[in-house]
Every structure is written in structure tokens, then in C-alpha cells.
């Protein structure tokens, strides 16, 4: 069953760009990554799914129900963590979480204490006094408290230190093992790689690709930079998998995808003075996909 399904979902804000004709689906029980640079339309998509804003055209379903028509019903089973967490400042963490839980008509006290313990959050503090990271923790607990069937996370790791991120990912994996579906939006490829089964890549409001993480890794390119003393034989560049070649006097840069051994064999034929091989950053991967799509 598809937990989330987008059908030609479009949201325009007057002149500024929103999202255009997004269609993809998230299957039950998967951790689905939603990745793109800032301003690509990730939050717009999520907010449309939650009917905080309404689609200009197209539609979406969650649990098979239209997101606009059945919004209140659907939201019973959704936990949402916004990218920026804002709460009623004068409330204590405990009171806010209890207030949140009452909307779902569930007793969540035990879970609240357990999660707060795991995340190392003091429930008696005032929200006003919390740091950005600690507010995020309140958001995480608030999103998970009522044991939703679908968790939607918009850039959830901002403000969390690496150790806390790890704890948070463990909590998510545990929830996922219980059958919870997770939509995880991020602009950091590595964290999506760690956690997700599949990803949708979005750029400038348009879907670039939906891909399995395993395939994304297999197709992944390496950025290679070599410094040579002499001229490089033209035949070197005929090696399959080499692209994006930039040639300078001594420095040559290119992207490579394919068998590393063949590349290394070829490299040994050159008069190398220096060699760098690194992962392209996300922006570069996007550019790569973006150019291919065009």
C-alpha cells in the first residue's frame, strides 16, 4: 500500500515558484528521503501534504485519502516535525507535550518520559529558555508522542549535535521496525544515505528523480583531480565513465563513475605528481542530475 501518493501536485505562490507537477509515492513501512537544496520546494510539498497550504492543481493522498478533504482524519495518524520549531513560549515542555497529546485523545505520559530520557531533555524547563537544539528535541517528542503511522520530518537534524543525531536516528529506526512509515526531508545527502531506503530528488520545484539509495550509491560519481608533469595522452579520456573534464595546464579535473580498478590502472600510466579523489558534494550531484534531465 502507498502511504503517500502525489499526483501532479502543483503549488504556485503568485509569481514565486512553488512546486510543479510532483508525482511520486511512499510505500508503507519505508523510510523515504526527500532531498534537494534549500528553496527547492521540500517544505512547500510537506506543507501542502498537511494542508497548511492548498494545492494549485493536482492532488495527493495519505493512507489512500485525499489530503484536503480528509485532513483532520488523516492528521490523527501523522506526526510532524517542522524545520523550524516554534511553540508557545510561556509553557513548560511538559505542559506543551501534554497539551499536544490531548488532541489525539491518548495517554502518552509514559512515552513522553521515555523519549525525553533518551533525548536527554528536561521536561520541567520553560520553552522560552530552551536552546535551538533543545527546542528541536521537544519537536521530535511532540511528533512521535502519539505513535503515528506516518512521521513527516522536515530537516530534522538541524541544531542537534552528532551524538544526539545518532540517538534520534536510532529512535527512528526503532519506530520504522514497528511499521511506521517515515518521510525524511533533508538537504544533506549523507544523513539521507544513512537512513533511507529510497529518495526523491527535487530541484527548483520539480522532481528530478526517485531512486533507491543502493542505486544512487552505485551510480555515484567520484571527483578526480590530477596533477601531471607532462601532457596527458588523449586516449586516457576515452575511458568510459569519465565526464565533466576540465583541463588546465598541469591540473586536470574530471568526474568518474564505474570500476575504480580500471581508473587506477589508467592513472598509473600517467606521470602523476598529485592525485585527489573525493565525493562530489550534494550540489554537484544535483547539477549532474539536473543536466542529465535537461
Amino acid at each position: 500500500m502507498n502511504v503517500i501518493e502525489l499526483k501532479q501536485l502543483t503549488k504556485r505562490y503568485g509569481r514565486t515558484r512553488g512546486i510543479e507537477n510532483l508525482s511520486f509515492h511512499v510505500e508503507e513501512g519505508e523510510i523515504f528521503g526527500f532531498i534537494g537544496p534549500n528553496g527547492a520546494g521540500k517544505s512547500t510539498t510537506i506543507r501542502t501534504l498537511l494542508s497548511l497550504i492548498y494545492p494549485t492543481s493536482g492532488s495527493a493522498t495519505i493512507f489512500g485519502k485525499d489530503t484536503v478533504k480528509y485532513a483532520p482524519e488523516i492528521k490523527k495518524e501523522i506526526g510532524y516535525l517542522p524545520s523550524e520549531v516554534f511553540y508557545y513560549d510561556n509553557m513548560k515542555v511538559k505542559d506543551l507535550l501534554k497539551y499536544s497529546a490531548r488532541f489525539y485523545k491518548k495517554d502518552c505520559h509514559r512515552r513522553m518520559v521515555a523519549l525525553a530520557d533518551q533525548l536527554n531533555l528536561d521536561l520541567d524547563r520553560k520553552i522560552d529558555d530552551l536552546s535551538f537544539g533543545n527546542k528541536k528535541k521537544v519537536g521530535i517528542i511532540q511528533g512521535l508522542l502519539h505513535e503515528p503511522r506516518l512521521i513527516i520530518l522536515d530537516e530534522p537534524t538541524g541544531g542537534l549535535d552528532p551524538l544526539m543525531q545518532q540517538t534520534f536516528f536510532e529512535i527512528l529506526r526503532l519506530e520504522n521496525q514497528k511499521g511506521t512509515t517515515i518521510l525524511f526531508s533533508s538537504h544533506i545527502l549523507s544523513e539521507v544515505q544513512k537512513l533511507c531506503d529510497r529518495v526523491a530528488i527535487i530541484k527548483e520545484g520539480q522532481l528530478v528523480k526517485v531512486e533507491k539509495i543502493s542505486e544512487l550509491k552505485a551510480n555515484s560519481h567520484k571527483k578526480v583531480e590530477i596533477e601531471t608533469s607532462g601532457e596527458i595522452n588523449e586516449r586516457f579520456f576515452e575511458l568510459s565513465g569519465i565526464n565533466h573534464v576540465e583541463r588546465g595546464e598541469h591540473l586536470t579535473r574530471f568526474w568518474f563513475s564505474g570500476n575504480m580498478n580500471t581508473l587506477l590502472e589508467q592513472l598509473t600510466q600517467l606521470e602523476l605528481m598529485n592525485l585527489w579523489i573525493e565525493e562530489p558534494d550534494l550540489e554537484e550531484i544535483f547539477m549532474h542530475y539536473y543536466e542529465k534531465e535537461r
Binding site: L52, P72, K75, Y80, F86, Y88, F103, Q142
Partner: peptide, 17 residues
Amino acid sequence: TDKTAEFLLTKPLSRAQ
């Protein structure tokens, strides 16, 4: 203005409620 809309409006309540 306080940006709490993302909290309240994602609760299982209709806008009318």
C-alpha cells in the same frame, strides 16, 4: 505571527473546529 500554526494546524482538527 508566532509561527505556532505549524503546530496547531497539523493537529487532527478541521479549520472550522
